[in-house]
Design a protein around this nucleic acid. Structure first.
Length: 804
RNA sequence: GCGGGUGUGGUGAAAUUGGCAAACACGCAAGAUUUAGGUUCUUGUGCCGCAAGGUUUGCAGGUUCAAGUCCUGUCACCCGCACCA
């Protein structure tokens, strides 16, 4: 009976069985309760799967398998987010078409995922580069265009000279290209934007209705970066018609303003250049700033620079005081109005600037020593006329706002850090933007019935040196008739950014083959929202906010049934290399999951990635710990030799069985997979100590094991002659009353120190326990000659004698 | 600088409401089986000590009968944001 544990044969046997039987296909029976588990679909890179993918998918894999056993109709889909630069770069390098590269990689990934035995619904696979998919990406884009949320604007853009592509702010952080790490240069270009800022408040408010881990919510809040304050209009002495409008979060400090600062690019400078005496100096400064990379700007935080504008003077609207205006690169054109009122007494940046340029510093809030440093704390208002004596910041701000509004020189205002989403790339391997530029009609959408607007075949994927998309070189694609007037027109040749396809993929999974709509209302009404979404921390801001934005837009259009796409979101921690560093090819510390599957089997790989530590935390890979999981699997396999008849729990294992069922059931829900596995290991050790296992005990053990290591569990279930197949059985329940042992050990302490232990019946009375405890030789000895002041009794836990 | 998080054995880590610190696993040591082992099994393993016993959760205080857990201060590391007005 006890054959060798031939994991390779067992795993392929059951993978075939599940596939042949469609075991994990989501059912179309909408009367059953549903559970929609979503994991971030992979980018099918040429490197194949990473152990990080395995960990990312194993979490909800366990939950999904358990849910099916609990009677849920489970949707656990997978797909491929396949547009993007790495594939295109491979194509440029090798000359192989990105379509072919993508298809090959998808085949590779699919094979690898299946070998791990994930219970994905393979009938619903999505490929974002499939024309039946990107047709709807384009369709949603056109809806946004119709509603004014997609627009073009001329701006300074971040341009990567190496990738020859315009990047979003997020893709060019630190002045480096996110893809090739070259230095970014600034360039003026007309680009596409999605007006995500219009949804800033909705995205923020929606967070109150969802169950995301607290740090995920916080990151999203910070990314949106809402601040409330006031806009204040300062007049300009030399030009009565002009107002210098600023944004501040601290209108209460208006009496402490001693100068103004505007960004070097502020339009006011050009407007009044004729009346500015030191225009040369200003131009020079501006040129200096433009040369600095973003990196240099942040490095020079401490050393403030700037130039006073000779010929423009601001007038404080509440005091009437005349104050100088400076330009400085510590004020950004991209936030607020590009101009600030400076209150050196209570802002560290303004303080540094004032010190350097010898400007007055006026204290308006008591509590600090402004001769030493700026005071940013709270306190009583001084030197502030009507505000004097107010000590509450909120009250002072409210009062100032009413003053400003009465005078008509300012009002309450709100600002966000979040910018509109730069939504185009000058690249080939992306969704074509379905817009036609007509000399007569302007921008005209491609008619819906003509979607998908297909990517034309191309010979050369190299982007043009002018930063244009390779599509611009294809005459047959570019030249077209205007859908509105029929005249000659040109197509938009930019494509959508990588984030587009993943912004709505969870909707397509609900109804992936629909050719009438991106998904039917009926299917979405049943499946949405996603019940549980798990993925990496690196996607909790951009991808999640982008997709929530698309979803909220569709909701406002009445096209999706829920205001939020994801009811719950968690995130797994990274798997680090054995050296504790982030895995990377250059470090040479990458672990290939295929190797692990080959040597130890998929079940062991699955067990290990969940056992290695707290699921949400980063943990280094350890080859020898993998062996520990292999040993666990081997010992489970060898249980067959300990099998005895019996369709109930033995006395020796009864409470252990119930305790373990409880522990594993609860830990899975809390994503504490490591302790769930530890509990099963403990039970296994207990079985070995007892020396035999009844069929009922082993069967139930296999049910617990199944979500984690389904192949070995299925095989043993069959080997020991149980009915049917394990994947179709019900999850098991426990009896709380049977989780307790008959006798328990309690700890006896004197003054908080453990002196002895005592075995008592679980239902022993307090009085009995105290008497027995005091009678314990060690306790009696230690208490001799002392007076017991207090006796603490914690039922089922301990007795503590406080003695003097 | 701001925000969040983490500090526990040689290692990865456990530890409801404060209630036996170190579960589970790795590693290591000794032994058994195995003439070879990426085999299996047994025993031991926080630290000091022959032992009785003492002592231990980054550091310093505090609250409590009792603190890894609560409070105050402090140090280190990690992640996010960053001249955001």
């Amino acid at each position: 009976m006890s054959k060798k544990y031939d994991f390779a044969a067992i795993e392929s046997k059951w993978q075939k069985y599940w596939e042949d039987n469609g075991s994990f296909r989501a059912s179309s029976d909408h009367t059953k309760p549903k559970f929609y588990a979503l994991v971030e679909f992979p980018y099918p890179s040429g490197h194949g799967m990473h152990v990080g993918h395995i960990k990312a998918y194993s979490g909800l894999e366990v939950v999904s398998r358990k849910r099916r056993m609990q009677g849920y109709n489970v949707l656990f889909p997978i797909g491929f987010d396949a547009y993007g630069l790495p594939t295109e770069n491979t194509a440029i390098k090798t000359g192989v078409h990105p379509r072919k590269v993508t298809d090959d990689n998808i085949v590779k990934f699919t094979g690898q995922l299946k070998k791990v035995g994930f219970s994905f619904d393979w009938d619903r696979v999505i490929d974002t580069t499939d024309e039946d998919y990107y047709k709807w990406t384009q369709w949603i884009f056109l809806k946004m265009f119709e509603n004014g949320l997609a627009f073009r604007d001329k701006t300074l853009v971040n341009y990567c000279p190496s990738c020859k592509v315009v990047l979003s702010n997020e893709d060019s952080q630190g002045g480096k290209c996110d893809i090739c790490h070259s230095d970014i240069v600034q360039k003026t270009k007309e680009v596409w934007y999605l007006r995500i800022t219009e949804y800033a408040d909705k995205l923020l408010e929606g967070l109150e209705t969802v169950d995301y881990l607290p740090n995920i919510k916080l990151q999203q809040e910070n990314w949106i970066g809402k601040s409330t304050g006031a806009f204040v209009n300062f007049s300009v002495k030399e030009h009565a018609e002009e107002t210098l409008r600023i944004y501040t979060t601290r209108p209460d400090t208006l009496y402490g303003v001693t100068f103004m600062v505007i960004a070097p690019e502020h339009p006011m400078i050009q407007k009044y250049r004729d009346s500015i005496a030191n225009m040369d100096e200003l131009d020079n400064y501006k040129a200096e700033c433009a040369k600095k990379s973003e990196f240099e700007r942040t490095q020079l935080v401490k050393d403030k620079t700037g130039v006073k504008i000779e010929g423009l003077t601001a007038v404080n609207p509440v005091t009437g005081k005349e104050i100088p205006i400076y330009i400085s690169d510590y004020v950004m054109m991209g936030y607020g109005t590009g101009a600030i009122m400076a209150v050196p007494a209570h802002d560290t940046r303004d303080y540094e600037f004032a010190k350097k340029f010898g400007i007055d510093i006026i204290e308006v809030i008591k509590g600090g020593d402004i001769s030493k440093e700026a005071y940013t704390g709270d306190g009583e208002m001084v030197n502030s006329d009507v505000l004097n004596g107010i000590s509450n910041k909120k009250d002072a701000i409210a009062k100032m706002l009413t003053v400003l509004e009465k005078k008509g020189c300012g009002e309450k205002g709100v600002q966000y850090k979040m910018k509109d989403w730069a939504f185009n790339r000058q690249r080939y391997w992306g969704e074509p933007i379905p817009i036609v530029h007509c000399p007569k009609c302007g921008m005209v959408p491609v008619p819906y019935e003509e979607l998908p607007l297909r990517l034309p075949p191309v010979e050369n994927f190299e982007p043009g040196t002018d930063g244009e998309s390779p599509l611009a070189k294809i005459e047959s694609f570019v030249h077209c008739q205007c859908p509105r007037c029929g005249g000659n027109a040109k197509r938009e040749t930019d494509t959508m950014p990588q984030w587009a396809g993943s912004s709505w993929y969870f909707l397509r999974y609900c109804d992936p083959k629909n050719d009438k709509a991106f998904a039917s209302q009926e299917e979405m009404a049943y499946w949405m929202p996603v019940d549980w979404y798990n993925g990496g921390m690196e996607h909790v801001t951009r991808h999640m906010i982008y997709s929530r934005f698309w979803h909220k837009f569709l909701y406002d259009m009445g096209l999706v049934p829920t205001a939020e796409p994801y009811a719950k979101r968690t995130a797994q921690g990274l798997i680090l290399g054995p050296d504790g560093e982030k895995m990377s090819k250059s470090r040479g510390n990458v672990v290939d999951p295929n190797d692990v599957v080959k040597v130890y089997g998929a079940d062991v790989l699955r067990l290990y990635v969940l056992f290695m530590g707290d699921y949400e935390k980063a943990a280094p890979w350890s080859d020898s710990s993998v062996k520990g999981c292999k040993r666990f699997a081997d010992r489970i396999w060898a249980l067959q030799e300990k099998l005895v008849d019996g369709d109930s729990y033995s006395d020796a294992l009864r409470s252990n069985m119930h305790k373990t069922i409880k522990k594993v059931s609860e830990d899975i829900e809390a994503m504490k997979f490591n302790t769930a596995i530890a509990a099963m290991m403990t039970l296994l050790n207990d079985i070995y100590n007892v020396g035999s296992v009844t069929k009922k005990e082993l069967r139930d053990f296999l049910v617990l094991l199944y979500p984690f290591a389904p192949h070995i569990a299925e095989e043993l279930y069959q080997q020991i002659g149980c009915e049917g197949v394990l994947s179709e059985q019900e999850w098991i329940t426990y009896d709380e009353a049977l989780c307790v042992d008959d006798t328990i050990e309690i700890v006896l302490q004197i003054n908080g120190k453990v002196r002895a232990k005592l075995n008592i019946p679980a239902d022993a009375e307090k009085e009995t326990v105290l008497v027995q405890a005091a009678a314990e030789p060690k306790i009696a000895e230690a208490l001799a000659g002392k007076t017991v002041i207090k006796e603490i009794y914690v039922p089922k836990k301990l007795v503590n004698f406080v003695a003097k």
